[in-house]
Design a binder for these strands. Structure first.
Lengths: 200, 200
DNA sequence: GGCGCATGATTAGCTCTCTAAGCATTTAGC
DNA sequence: GCTAAATGCTTAGAGAGCTAATCATGCGCC
């Protein structure tokens, strides 16, 4: 039900493209396509500085706080440990970070940015700002806010569904994503102001 | 700029979480996270029927129309040909489809669903409907519509950016995505009504 | 103080996606 | 009619993500 009700509210009936009329699906499509688009747009730009999109995710976290374990890094990134592991391995080879064992633990591996890794921030953050700016060009900020709110609820809904479907690992990760989103005050491409606030 | 304007419109100032106040970024985050969430939710369900998420994409297209070439299939899916190729290869092994050369061309390969592949529709489409329904639970349909509209413009913005950045291949794909979105009348999980309309 | 579970790092191997490059066929131009 | 370009399929190889399994260390409990 609920499909293509004529909706006599407004007079622009002809204008009301099916886009707006069709119900639930396609939103998943749109989300996927826009996600891929955004990722590619950033990727293109990062590539010119020899940074892959996968590395970007971890750099962002480390610029805020380094000296943390791989495990913590995984959690903040919302990625599984093997993914983190391989990304860090290649980033270490590129000289962006170092993995060190500290004296008080022979188990944990702590990740530190090198000066090179730290300096990337100045070059890379503006690229992400560009992409975000381009993406929302010409869109009413209120609509962007609505979109943000909607997506957040969708993530919550999906996380709840995952818990109910009894898959503790997945549900936990999903919940972690939400936590991170909630607790990230201003970590990356927010405003110039907040970027400065990190002590770039 | 445009960050955290107080916006005295409403009285719920305290309630206006930073979520709504922060500007451009994080939307990319949210989109990525929700995309992964939606994908995983569907994946979980498809897996129980031995169908991977990658196959779903092509099945959806073929349920509407089969007997098309790999090339056309790639375009409709918005994926590169090698991606299509490998997906089709494994789907053929699973017995969901057949690749046939027709007499009038020794170059083109035409893809046809087998009865098995066609029957999956009845089982799988409801799964996608479930996921979409769960995802938008409790959200004002108007907000979902706004989100859809916003994402569409974002995709357009990114596509335009890609053309400007002189990468014809990428930009072309992005534009194709939009075309497909525009021209897909009722291909999958729309309403029960439209599902029936495909002659399931 | 030692046994065993918990936790962090790693390895192996899978999927999905991409780019780049190859080969085969069809079409177009001279 | 024959060569050259365009088109379609395929192969090869990479990256980013995942799960499952393994190994080492740390910690709790008896």
């Amino acid at each position: 039900m609920s499909a293509r009700k004529p909706d006599p509210r407004t007079g622009d009936i002809m204008l009301r493209h099916w886009r707006e009329a069709v119900p639930n699906d396609r939103i998943a499509h749109l989300i996927k396509d826009s996600s891929r688009g955004l990722q590619r747009a950033l990727q293109m730009r990062l590539a010119r500085h020899n940074v892959s999109f996968g590395h970007w995710v971890f750099l962002r976290i480390l610029w805020v706080r380094d000296g943390i374990t791989q495990r913590e890094l995984s959690e903040e990134a919302g990625l599984m440990e093997p993914t983190t592991f391989s990304a860090l391995t290649s980033m270490e080879k590129l000289g962006y970070l170092e993995r060190r064992k500290l004296p008080h633990s022979r188990k944990n591996v702590y990740v530190f940015l090198t000066p090179a890794g730290r300096q990337l921030k100045k070059k890379l953050v503006p690229l992400a700002e560009d992409v975000n700016e381009i993406a929302v060009q010409g869109i009413d900020p209120a609509d962007v806010a609505t979109t943000r709110r909607t997506l957040l609820v969708m993530i919550e809904n999906i996380a709840r569904d995952e818990s109910e479907h009894a898959d503790p690992t997945r549900a936990a990760r999903m919940r972690r994503m939400l936590d991170v989103i909630d607790n990230e005050p201003t970590e990356d491409t927010d405003t110039k102001k907040s970027t400065d606030a990190f002590g770039v």
